[in-house]
Design a protein around this nucleic acid. Structure first.
Length: 681
RNA sequence: UGGCUUAUGGUGUAACUGGCAACACGUCUGGUUUUGGUCCAGAAGAGUCUAGGUUCGAGCCCUAGUAAGCCAACCA
């Protein structure tokens, strides 16, 4: 009951307002209207979350309506996939509907339009019509068929419907205004001839209605109260309302509610793309292995990758809803899935990059089955047994011959704990001809077994390693994924095609050793491989050949601390670019705080600015001359930078003089002092 | 040369009718820990795009700029 403290997003505010203005809560109704021409992606999840979320919040029905007005692109396969995805996310729709259900009603209304002179048949080529339509900056002109008689229009439209013409011969247009500033209002097309088989209506129609004519009227027929869509449909709203107001005249008794379209910003995720067309290209070009490839931002891809509906819904809820363009950092998505899996995923041990560890003082042939906790976050998860023996695998990364005190893992002469087992100490290594370590020899402390409570078992050691017994471990394939694109916003560049940014190393195949309990893992099961990350069993998996997908790594505050050891992989490059800020930006920031700084720090800041100023061009600096009067610090920083530039040979111009003059008469002595110094240059 | 929309820490979203700019992610400290995870405690980071105006008081209202996005498919 206390959650109503939470502030409402702008859509909820609109609804609350409508409710306050007399809209009956019973009449609240929403819809999610996908076109069945592709798979749903994480961006759609936002739209789904908004409409279905509102349905849940107000206890109102939400229809799932397939916007299937283009038989050329739409297929049953997509309908099935969409239904599966929406259900998987945990939403249930009120009615499953199709725009094609309304073809007859739409046709009947269109006839009325013609009779009232609100629509006409145009018989020009699409090129001719495009020309008459004008451009966003230039009005259109009327075409030659605009004033055909009602009888002729009726006759032609009837013949169109009856298949007497070829595709492209004629279209039906609404008669609105060819000079309208909104291009969508310049006599928009309502029907085109398409002699194609439709996945629902078969061959009964050879004219198909266009989006604008269909979508809004479908909302109206279903008596949707709030029709929510993404921002690019904002210009359509005017046409949406125009059509709506016409049909309302014909059908207000049957359909009293006028739907209201409102628009929100769609979701963008960094390092990926969200266009169905482009995703389709990745599939068709075999960049990925299908729509549900775990690297895809599709819902089916995320599902296969191991994401949970809970995590995805939490993500959508967290990103919020507003009207400005946004790019959400993938780290937020990763946080959401970690948060969920941390609570629910059983812990197991798996070694992805193995090196042999031999415990020389452990009896040969001996084996012990040790107790291991399944999930420290969930007491009810219980315990399991894992086998221990003289020969184990550990991660190659977990050993270094020599290491400094910051290294918590195994090194020669140092102790470390084997998770759920004993404390060991490394003594020597064996290497092959390439100087690669093939075996690590160590001894164990027999009294240090985990959980025994003995003094030795309670000893504190710096690190704990995961391991598997070589004799008992089973082999498994692990598919490790990296981002598909190396650019933060791959499809936002005008000159560079998004395909140029594809990361060639987005899939890594790993032969791993996993603990034997995993032999019983079933498709879809999720685990935490301790100290590594979260993994789930892929559907390619067979009992004899288990395959895991890496969902996401554990948060890692260690690897990023050792830059000298970080491989110079491609994927990290854009991040570095992003972090490297422009000198002028840093100067601005230093300036903001400048006047608040104690004198010593001011001097340092000034030095920093002077240093940075060497990288600044006059073009970058000039806009800062317009800095608000009250932002004295920024003006001082600008002055210091300008000083450096002038000393570097820059000539004074009117803007510079003006900037200095204003500074000379300021109230802030520090600024005046800097301005005085510079005026002598 | 047009129309529409948007502008708040690195990212995203808040800030009720004008009143100390908040929350989450990310970053950085420290503590706990048989996962360098989790958890706990804390820190840094915003002069709210710019310039004016109204007001005791503006992120919010007004005016003018600037920047970004969308709009010219017989796609949705």
């Amino acid at each position: 009951m206390s959650e109503d403290k939470k502030s409402l997003n702008f859509l909820e505010q609109i609804i609350e307002e409508d409710l306050a203005n007399g809209l009956d809560k019973k009449n609240l109704r929403f819809r999610f209207p996908p076109e069945p021409n592709g798979y749903l992606h994480i961006g759609h999840t936002k739209a789904i979350g908004i409409s279905f979320g509102l349905g849940e919040k107000y206890n109102a029905p939400v229809n799932l309506r397939f916007d299937d007005t283009n038989p050329a692109k739409e297929e049953q396969e997509y309908v099935d996939a969409i239904k599966k995805d929406v259900s998987w996310l945990g939403y249930s729709w009120d009615k499953e509907l199709y725009s094609s259900d309304y073809f007859q009603q739409l046709y009947d209304w269109a006839i009325l339009f013609i009779k009232e002179g609100k629509a006409y048949v145009d018989s020009q080529s699409s090129e001719a019509m495009a020309e008459q339509k004008g451009t966003p900056t230039q009005p259109g002109i009327d075409g030659p068929y605009r004033n055909r008689s009602v009888e002729e229009n009726l006759e032609l439209f009837n013949q169109m419907k009856n298949g007497l013409f070829n595709e492209g011969d004629h279209i039906l247009r609404a008669k609105i205004d060819m000079k309208h500033p909104n291009m969508l209002m310049r006599d928009p097309i309502m029907y085109r001839i398409l002699k194609k088989h439709h996945h629902r209506t078969g061959n009964t129609w050879c004219i198909y209605p266009m989006y604008d004519w269909t979508h809004g009227e479908s909302d109206y027929i279903e008596q949707i109260s709030h029709s929510l869509c993404s921002l690019e449909f904002k210009p359509h709203r005017e046409l949406y309302n125009w059509f709506k107001n016409q049909v309302y005249q014909y059908s207000k008794e049957t359909y009293p509610i006028l739907p209201k379209q409102r628009e929100f910003a769609r979701l963008n995720l960094s390092y990926t793309i969200m266009s169905k067309r482009k995703l389709l290209k990745l599939v068709e070009d075999r960049i990925v292995n299908g729509w549900d490839d775990p690297r895809m931002p599709t819902i089916s891809g995320l599902r296969r990758r191991g994401y949970t509906p809970t995590a995805i819904r939490k993500f959508v809820e967290t990103v919020g809803v507003a009207k400005r363009d946004n790019v959400i950092d993938v780290s937020l998505l990763e946080f959401c899935i970690r948060e969920d899996l941390n609570k629910t995923a059983p812990r197991v041990m798996a070694v992805l990059d193995p090196v042999k560890l031999i415990i020389s003082n452990y009896t040969e042939g001996k084996e012990e089955w040790l107790e291991a906790e399944n999930n420290p976050e969930d007491e009810s998860a219980g315990f399991r047994k894992i086998p221990f023996s003289r020969e184990l695998y550990i991660e190659r990364d977990d050993f270094k011959e020599e290491a400094n005190s910051k290294y918590f893992r195994l090194s020669l002469g140092n102790e470390v704990r084997l998770k759920n087992a004993y404390i060991i100490k490394a003594h020597s290594v064996i290497k092959d001809d390439n100087n690669t370590i093939t075996e690590i020899h160590c001894t164990y402390d027999a009294d240090s077994l985990s959980g025994t409570g003995s003094e030795a078992s309670l000893r504190k050691v710096k690190g704990t390693l995961h391991w598997v017994s070589t004799k008992h471990a089973i082999k498994a394939d692990v598919r490790e994924y990296d981002r598909l694109f190396m650019d933060e916003a791959p499809d936002s560049h005008q000159e560079i095609d998004f395909m140029e940014f594809i990361n060639p190393d987005s899939l890594k195949l790993i032969n791993a050793f996993v603990e034997p309990s995993l032999a019983e893992a079933k498709v879809g099961d999720r685990f935490q491989f301790q100290r590594i990350g979260y993994f789930n069993v892929d559907y390619d998996s067979k009992p004899s050949h288990i395959i895991f997908n890496k969902t996401v790594g554990l948060r890692d505050s260690w690897t990023k601390k050792k830059p000298e050891e970080q491989p110079q992989n491609i994927a990290s490059t854009p991040i570095q670019n992003q972090v490297q800020r422009k000198a002028i930006d840093v100067i601005q920031q230093l300036g903001k705080k400048f006047t608040n700084l104690p004198e010593a720090k001011q001097l340092k800041a000034k030095k920093d600015i002077q240093e940075l100023a060497k990288q600044v061009s006059y073009e970058e600096l000039e806009p800062l001359f317009g800095t608000a009067t009250k932002k004295v610090g920024t003006r001082i920083a600008t002055m210091i930078t300008l000083d450096v530039l002038l000393k570097g040979g820059l000539k004074k111009n009117a803007q510079i003089e003006d900037f200095i003059e204003k500074a000379l008469v300021d109230n802030e002595p520090l600024l005046v002092a800097h301005a005085k110094a510079i005026s002598l240059v």
